[in-house]
């Protein structure tokens, strides 16, 4: 089943064409990566899908529902969860409240029921707390429910952001550079972790990355963007051998990430795909506990 379709999506910021002719067909259960250098338009695509910006042209459909023109909360309520490239937690609120807030669309009681404490209010609030606590326990954050989000260490903030996105109850999860600021060791753990939540929460994942290692390791399909244009599309193997990609990035040679050296460092990394889960052996757990492997 096709979960998400984007056809001929274009977006302009003033005169700048941030995304041009973006097409996408994401099957349910797939884990797809979008890669490209800084400023390629990756985050803009997430913002178009989730309604932060309205696409200048084209159509985006989620399970047959047109998303262009809908507000972010309407789109999110269709069960599309996301994280942000720069962590955007509700910094001054507690860990528990961060997760509870994401239950807004799924909890069913009216303002009047809330104001007078009648009807479904108590039952729903209880359910929200229980579900939030369950999620936080899965993410090994239950000891910090009362902590203010901004006081968590960086790694835990990233983890909380994913927990909050899962509180939406998403079918589709959009991860924007989840490995930002992590060392290679942590990235390994993160890869296992993403595979694990994908299976555990039955997710379809669209993942933006800047770090080649991560996408090459876990994505089944990749899209490569450059200056808003899709320059390649295929399996990690195909991408690695795609002359256009090689030309675009190897030829450029200006940055570490894309100058070819890094890119060429993981030729066989894609062999990791296939989603072998080792949660019980404590690998994904390693990420959760922040343990060094």
């Amino acid at each position: 089943m096709t979960l998400l379709t984007a056809s001929k999506v274009k977006h302009y910021f003033g005169g700048l064409c941030a995304v041009s002719e973006f097409n996408l067909e994401l099957q349910a259960g797939e884990l797809m990566g979008v890669i490209g250098p800084n400023g390629a338009g990756k985050t803009t695509i997430f913002n178009l899908i989730t309604g932060v910006y309205r696409a200048s042209e084209g159509s985006i459909q989620f399970k047959g529902t047109e998303l262009v023109g809908k507000t972010p909360h309407q789109i999110t309520a269709l069960r599309i969860g996301r994280t942000f490239q720069n962590i955007r937690l509700f910094r001054d609120l507690s860990v528990l409240d961060n997760v509870r807030i994401a239950h807004y669309a799924q909890s069913d009681y009216s303002p009047l029921e809330a104001l007078l404490q009648i009807g479904r209010y108590r039952r729903e609030e209880q359910r929200i707390i229980e579900n939030s606590r369950r999620l936080l326990a899965i993410f090994h954050l239950e000891a910090m429910v009362g902590e203010t989000a901004k006081n968590l260490p960086y790694g835990l903030q990233r983890r909380l952001e994913i927990a909050r996105a899962l509180a939406i109850g998403p079918e589709l999860l959009l991860l924007d550079e989840p490995a930002a600021g992590m060392n290679p060791n942590e990235i390994d753990l993160l890869m296992e972790f993403i595979q694990w939540i994908r299976k555990e929460f039955n997710l379809t994942i669209l993942l933006i990355e800047h770090q080649m290692k991560l996408v090459m390791g876990i994505c089944e399909r990749l899209k490569v963007l450059d200056f808003g244009e899709t320059i390649a599309d295929g399996t990690p193997e195909q991408i690695q051998n795609n002359p256009k990609v090689l030309e675009a990035y190897l030829g450029r040679g200006q940055s570490d990430e894309w100058g070819g050296r890094r890119f060429g460092r993981y030729p066989a990394g894609c062999a990791r795909s296939g989603g072998h889960l080792r949660w019980h052996q404590g690998v994904a757990r390693g990420f959760l506990l922040g343990r060094q492997r």
Binding site: T50, V52, P72, H73, T76, I101, A102, Y104, A105, I168
Partner: peptide, 8 residues
């Protein structure tokens, strides 16, 4: 914006 994106 984050609030809106968390379905509020």
């Amino acid at each position: 914006i984050a609030s809106d994106l968390m379905s509020v």
